[in-house]
Amino acid sequence: MNRTLPARDEVHVWFCDAGRPGGRRADAIGDIALLSREEKIRCARITRPAERRGFAAARAGARRVLAELVGAAPETIDMSAGMWMSTGRGLREDAPEDDAGTGATPLVLDLVWSADAWVLGLSAGIRLCLALERVEGPASAAAARERVRRKALARLSGAEHAGAVQGAAPGGFSVHDVPTPVSAVAAVACSGRHRRTGGPSLLLREVPAVP
């Protein structure tokens, strides 16, 4: 089990596309079983079956990733908050930095999905926003890549303008392509809070296998 959390100036990304050849098809019943009560209500309100499966697969997938990081059961993970703290005992939601103990690092997460594909980002002390789009092949990937880069930047700009993270410094945004198969394109926009002049270090990690 790999419980390595992002270090300062790192962004870890998990990508899953169950719809591509060889990918794991969403197990709607198994995925929904991992969701919280609020997530199940939200899922039930989605009228289109494909979108409903995509929502459940993304939320359940993110839970499996976070559960593997902290050694917990996926259904016990609290996905209600976007800001987490590493306290040496694992992750807990929205903990104030002065209460987290020496060496605590704020961990920020974001999750987006499109159909059967989803991407989860986790960073240490860097505000991030993701964007994802399914594509039919290389011919449509170039235009889609520009769209997802703009969308990721727009989401981050809007989040920082709204004060989504207390003390976040405005401006200084950067955007980076997320390595993905040809079935989808994704991008991550990061705030200027990192110290690396060349931007954060982006690491694509393996999605935990489903039993």
Rank of each mutant, 00 (worst) to 15 (best):
G137P: 12
R37L: 08
A60M: 06
S140P: 00
S140E: 06
R42V: 01
E93I: 06
G167M: 12
D99N: 09
A57Q: 13
E146H: 07
A169C: 13
V188D: 00
D116Y: 11
L120P: 05
E133N: 05
G125A: 13
E133Y: 01
E38F: 02
G88V: 05
S114M: 11
L130K: 04
L122Q: 05
A131T: 07
A159Q: 09
R25N: 14
M83N: 10
T87E: 11
A26E: 14
A186Y: 00
G158P: 00
A67Y: 00
W14V: 06
G171M: 13
G192H: 10
A81D: 06
G71S: 10
C190G: 08
A184I: 00
G30I: 12
C16Y: 12
N2Q: 07
E146G: 09
S86C: 05
L156F: 01
A18T: 15
A26Q: 14
R59S: 01
A104T: 01
A100M: 10
G19M: 12
I46Y: 06
E93Y: 02
M1I: 02
A152N: 04
R150F: 05
R150I: 08
H12R: 03
A164V: 04
M1E: 02
L69G: 12
V13C: 08
T197W: 12
D9H: 08
M79H: 09
A164F: 05
E39V: 07
E160F: 00
S191K: 06
V119P: 05
R155H: 10
Q166K: 13
V108Y: 07
L91N: 00
V112A: 04
T47E: 15
G163Y: 08
D27I: 15
S80A: 06
A159F: 10
A189L: 02
S36T: 12
L34C: 10
A124G: 15
V65Y: 01
E39W: 06
D177R: 07
A159G: 00
L34Y: 11
G192K: 01
A18Y: 12
A162F: 09
S140Q: 00
R42W: 03
V178C: 08
T4S: 12
Q166L: 12
A56Q: 03
I126Q: 07
W14P: 05
V175F: 04
V207S: 05
A144M: 08
A186R: 01
S191T: 00
N2A: 03
T87A: 13
G90I: 06
P21I: 14
